[in-house]
Design a binder for these strands. Structure first.
Length: 331
DNA sequence: TAGGCCATCTGGTCCT
DNA sequence: AGGACCAGATGGCCTA
């Protein structure tokens, strides 16, 4: 028996919706009538859809019942029950198919926006894509970190900046961020070409390189730390980009790829950037712990001193879970 | 094999 | 009526 799996768009086959499938004789999309509905993506074939399928089968019965109901209609109280005629079912299906297409398109737009957000994150790797939730967390942290840098004169080279950046992130993402910081700080370091695209040969606006340097480090290809994004700070402090209007750089779906400092004249204040409050969900207890940030920071700050001894020995890169290192080499 | 992430379908709700 | 938005459900893919 050939089971037709659900195929996503862009994978060479057209998506066949359960409704389209239902339009036929309830056989599978590829015509294999032996496939039962539970095999064909029962998720898409929801309860109501299945009920509609049965309605199809019972339609003739309904027509007979309708005739009988007509006789009793005038005697019955309450709102008149709408009949599910064939025409109504057709309309319903057409609406549903259109709604599905809209929903897909909407989600694609949402994903495009998320991709745009990923592309302007300080840590951008083509090989290890941030998940949706991690992208949002990192974006939040990035905003907070930059705000703190502006308000408190906190250096983007500081440990506190890094800690803010990593708050609430999962361990792999924290490692990724730390690795990106390293690479951005050491442009001479070995990088995979596909990961090099985001790095611009610009100094950080606060002068010099990011300090999480690791000279001579056999830099793992975590991704890139795009120091050019730090030009946000320069712009907001009265730099050459200060007067750009937000519209110049667009926004939302269809925004061109980030190719310069998108520096809307934001007024960063404590109103806009509320102090982080403890929340049952933030940080996620199973993902984040200060000790882990310590661990990563130590990794990035000690230049991987293989001769170091003492309490931090367990932070040696050799102890980084292999998952974070191997996974980025995958493709 | 379990768990995380994701895409999709779907029905409900709100708004125009 | 129809569109936008949302959350629940489901199954596929990938990795440890």
């Amino acid at each position: 028996m050939m089971i037709k799996p659900y195929v996503r768009q862009g994978e060479g086959e057209e998506v066949v919706s359960p409704l389209q499938w239902m339009d036929g004789d309830m056989s599978s999309p590829d015509g294999d009538a032996s496939v039962s509905s539970r095999h064909y993506r029962s998720g898409g074939l929801s309860q109501q859809a299945r009920e509609m399928g049965s309605e199809d089968a019972e339609e003739d019965e309904e027509d007979v019942e309708e005739a009988q109901e007509d006789e009793n209609e005038s005697k019955r109280r309450g709102p008149k029950k709408k009949r599910m005629t064939k025409a109504r079912q057709e309309r319903f299906r057409a609406r549903r198919v259109k709604a599905n297409a809209r929903e897909r398109s909407r989600m694609h737009g949402l994903n495009d926006a998320l991709e745009n957000l990923r592309s302007i994150m300080p840590c951008h790797s083509k090989t290890q894509k941030l998940s949706k939730i991690e992208t949002l967390r990192l974006a939040r942290n990035y905003i907070c970190a930059l705000s703190e840098a502006l308000e408190g004169g906190l250096s983007t080279e500081s440990r506190a900046f890094m800690e803010t950046l990593c708050k609430g992130l999962s361990q792999p993402t924290t490692n990724l961020v730390a690795g990106c910081v390293q690479l951005g700080a050491a442009p001479g370091a070995v990088m995979r070409p596909e990961d090099r695209h985001g790095v611009r040969p610009l100094p950080t606006p606060l002068g010099g390189m990011v300090s999480y340097t690791s000279p001579g480090l056999p830099s793992p290809p975590y991704g890139t730390f795009d120091s050019a994004h730090l030009l946000h700070l320069r712009a907001m402090k009265g730099g050459p980009y200060e007067n750009h209007s937000p519209n110049e750089y667009g926004g939302g779906v269809g925004t061109p790829p980030y190719d310069g400092p998108p520096t809307p004249p934001l007024s960063i204040s404590s109103n806009l950037v509320p102090k982080q409050e403890p929340s049952p969900h933030y940080p996620p207890p199973h993902h984040y712990s200060p000790s882990h940030v310590d661990q990563v920071l130590y990794q990035t700050q000690t230049s991987y001193d293989t001769h170091s001894e003492g309490p931090y020995d367990s932070y040696h890169p050799a102890h980084i879970p292999s998952r974070q290192i191997t996974s980025v080499y995958r493709d």
